[in-house]
Design a protein around this nucleic acid. Structure first.
Lengths: 150, 150
DNA sequence: CCTATATTGTCAATAAAATTGACAAATACT
DNA sequence: AGTATTTGTCAATTTTATTGACAATATAGG
């Protein structure tokens, strides 16, 4: 972080290390956008997942978010109370129902995304398409590789 | 995460979003390397900063880590108790002393880094030098830009 | 069909990381 | 010198997430 690492592995190491402070700065920013929405970060993550998956059981959301099922369940319950997600019966499973965004939940997460997208666009300008593409791909590969057993 | 985003800003957005799960998977991995060292993640971060800065006051470490001074102070006290950092008088400031790694602290953080570097080298192989360079640079720029006011 | 095993839901306790508040001591500024 | 800022310290709290435990349901093998 102070001086630029010399070798390729060192640079990757430093980049990964930076994930922690970066997450903190991102979270701080995100909070501003969450201000007034009455959403926690966990709720926001689950809404994000529900938007991406459209229709998913709790275990599917758990896989997607790579969190513990108990945590996801707790957040889902909060979102049900707020009527931002709703349950739909699952023909294949009596207990494990589907969760979907309600219209208001969908509107909410889209609003939050839109506000953030506006900010992100500022930064996107700074980088080339290839750079962003590389960044995205590396995040995916790292996340995939690290989350699987080695 | 599910389907590849279409536009550049969307891809950057998705990549940044991925920071959270990625940090979680990294933390899980890191814990394995911390196993047996009796270090918390916070302690490890401060050791890492102390190694990079060589000699620094608590406020300097706070700036470097972008954490609250009270948190850094707490961790520093833990590390002092464990004799992994030591204080040195600061001629310019009576209260705000310098913190340095003790030999054992230095050995410890270097050992942890070495173990992780070994793993990282595996991943570094997967990417080209340019990709890693881009990743690193973007992490730096994003962190810088986001941590400053906008 | 029946039993063993795995999955899922639910409730509770706990932990880790970090923030916030409050106040005193030291320093910097003018 | 006097005021504002920085720094250290102690305590409480918050947020995020994990872990443990147990019951209900599903799945797979015999």
């Amino acid at each position: 972080m102070l001086k630029k690492p010399k070798t390729k592995p060192e640079m990757l190491y430093a980049g990964i290390q930076m994930t922690r402070p970066l997450l903190r700065t991102i979270s701080n920013r995100v909070e501003a956008d969450l201000e007034g929405t009455d959403l926690t970060v966990g709720q926001r993550a689950v809404l994000e997942a529900a938007l991406a998956l459209e229709q998913a059981t709790a275990p599917q959301l758990t896989d997607f978010l790579q969190l513990k099922r108990q945590f996801v369940a707790k957040v889902l319950k909060e979102l049900l109370d707020k009527e931002q997600v709703e349950q739909m019966s699952n023909p294949r499973h009596k207990r494990s129902v589907f969760y979907c965004l309600t219209p208001s939940g969908k509107a909410l997460i889209k609003k939050v995304r839109k506000a953030e997208m506006k900010r992100i666009e500022e930064f996107a300008k700074v980088f080339s398409e290839e750079e962003v593409e590389t960044y995205y791909r590396m995040q995916c590969v790292l996340n995939d590789a690290l989350s699987k057993r080695s």
